[in-house]
Amino acid sequence: MIYVFALFLLTLLVITAVAIVRTTNLFVAVMLTSIFSLLMAANFFILDAADVALTEAAVGAGVTTVIFLSALALAGDVEQPRLGSRLLPLGTVGVLAVLIIYATFDKPRLGDPDAPVHQHVAPWYLEKTPEYMDIPNVVTAVLSSFRGYDTLGEVFVVFAACIGVLFILGVRPPGPAAELPAEPSGLRHHLIPQVVGRLLVPFIVLFGLYVQFHGEYGPGGGFQAGAIIATGVILYALLEGEAEALRAVPRSVLLGLVVGGALLFGAVGVVCMLMGGAFLDYSVLAADPVFGQQMGIIVIEAGVGMAVCGALLSIFHAFAAREGRP
């Protein structure tokens, strides 16, 4: 039954994707994209990948739409008419599609326990997680301990992406020039969203922190938490205006979060080395190696959360500052 649902949702996904490609109104495309994201999250959920689904939810529900719409406000929402013949792209895509379909013939059945991917390191992870760090969520264990180097790399990718966006959008340094927003942006005369939003923000922040600190037990972790908390602040910025949000959470704090998060992650690794272990081998952090692992995971997840939250908010503010400029 579950597979029928998954198949059904995948069909809807394809229909939505085709519609996104075919529409020339970019605003409509953004709206369809958010439907696409919802479908994607439901699909991940049905396939039992709750961590990924939560990531999709945290990023897709708020941040993506907001950033897409900011970009549309800068760029206009009608697609440029396309030039030249469509035959070449159509042919390329067609050949690729045939190749991919051909490749799937070799794919093992969905959920087949004998598939090669389940024979390699996965059983070892499943077996060793309770022994090494004693936490229920193996995804978090793999992400932050077994494959800690990968996650460190990802955090630095987020860091680099944030710096890249800030360079491209050319935010001025916070100085006297930036202090003159002619008129406050945000919603005016909109009592209902403002009052309800104000009520929601603390709960969103708390939920983000809950996701942050329960990564070991349920779906969640630093990436999702960072995105959720960023969404809470973005909600506040939408309701009360840019300037007000920057007053509540200043830009220096945001940049501090990005840099501090990345450094915190790296510092944990260095501390591990100083205490006589390998880089990012948390076992040496405490007398009891299992507890050391748990501490290490909590600290680096906090680093990830800080970096993601700071990066998303910096990007959001960069877009908004650009928008306010003539």
Binding site: A58, A61, G62, V66, P193, G197, I228, T231
Partner: peptide, 11 residues
């Protein structure tokens, strides 16, 4: 998560 943050997109 969705119940909390879905409204942000609409706003």
């Amino acid at each position: 998560a969705y119940a909390l943050i879905n409204v942000v997109g609409i706003l």
